[in-house]
């Protein structure tokens, strides 16, 4: 009888197609985000995150249609991220059926945008994506900095201070990605997770580095995460969502089973 920790599968989409691919045994179209989202929802995913990596303007219109289609068929919370830069972008996605939007680069280039967005639409739908990389040398106390452009561009912003600032501006949730761990499958940066989770009052979603189910447990128990986001371990059928939830529940974590 308590709030459950959440598992959030993430779909990376380009022009309305899932790009990293999904390998379910019995799926008809491995690139169709609507079918994949529906399958994850049926499997017990607690939310879906749809990350749009489309560059072109025409592609963005496809994205809106895809979000509409998912929201018409999948009745769990849906977060849309990628390319959210203006209040109009947010309105478009919320009208299409998104429940939350995730703001990334635009928060760094214009922090006031987060404040305006939260005032206009409410903190409950504003997720700020924090992409952090460890910058302290061996032997020094841990320090992480915010990076943009997929971890290539340093900003000089301290990750913990930045997360606190984003929450004070109205972020309702933090999506924390370790750029050191993203794609490595060696587990979350637990020290980073714990530092950010302790620094802010709002929920923190851990992302970047999941390779097995114990990593999900560690993210919650050691990293203090309220939710865990993962893509590849679910997409390629290595683990199913029910399997992940049961594994976490067996280790004492409250889950929605």
């Amino acid at each position: 009888m308590a709030l459950a920790k959440r598992i959030i599968p993430c779909l990376d989409c380009d022009k309305g197609r899932v790009v990293k691919g999904v390998k379910f045994l019995d799926i008809r179209d491995a690139g169709d985000p609507v079918e994949i989202a529906r399958r994850y929802s049926e499997a017990g995913a607690d939310e879906i995150t749809f990350l749009d990596i489309t560059a072109s303007h025409e592609g963005r219109e496809t994205t809106v249609k895809t979000v509409e289609a998912i929201a018409s068929q999948v009745f769990i919370p849906l977060t849309v991220g990628g390319g959210i830069r203006t209040l109009e972008d947010i309105r478009t996605m919320l009208n299409a059926g998104a429940d939350k939007v995730s703001i990334n680069t635009a928060a760094v280039t214009n922090p006031e945008f987060v404040r305006q967005a939260a005032e206009k639409f409410g903190s409950q739908c504003i997720v700020v994506a924090v992409d952090a990389k460890k910058v302290s040398a061996e032997g020094e106390p841990d320090r992480w900095e915010i990076f943009t452009h997929g971890g290539r561009k340093p900003t000089g912003l301290d990750a913990i201070e930045w997360a606190r600032r984003m929450v004070s501006y109205g972020a309702g949730e933090i999506l924390l990605t370790s750029m050191d761990r993203d794609g490595t499958k060696i587990g979350f940066d637990l020290a980073l997770n714990r530092a950010i989770s302790d620094a802010v009052d709002v929920p923190v979603i851990a992302s970047g580095g999941v390779g097995n189910l114990q990593h999900l447990v560690d993210g919650v128990v050691q990293g203090g995460a309220d939710a865990v986001l993962a893509a590849s371990i679910f997409h390629f059928g290595e683990y199913s969502i029910p399997e992940a939830k049961q594994f976490m529940a067996d280790r004492g974590i409250t889950m929605r089973l």
Binding site: A2, L3, A4, K5, S123, D201, P203, A227
Partner: peptide, 28 residues
Amino acid sequence: LKVPHMGWNNVHQTRTHPLWQGIEDNSR
């Protein structure tokens, strides 16, 4: 505890009601 209260939590049905029909007590 984090605020906002965000996610799936149990709802205890404190009385019977037509809107609870077919929903188990303490569902999330």
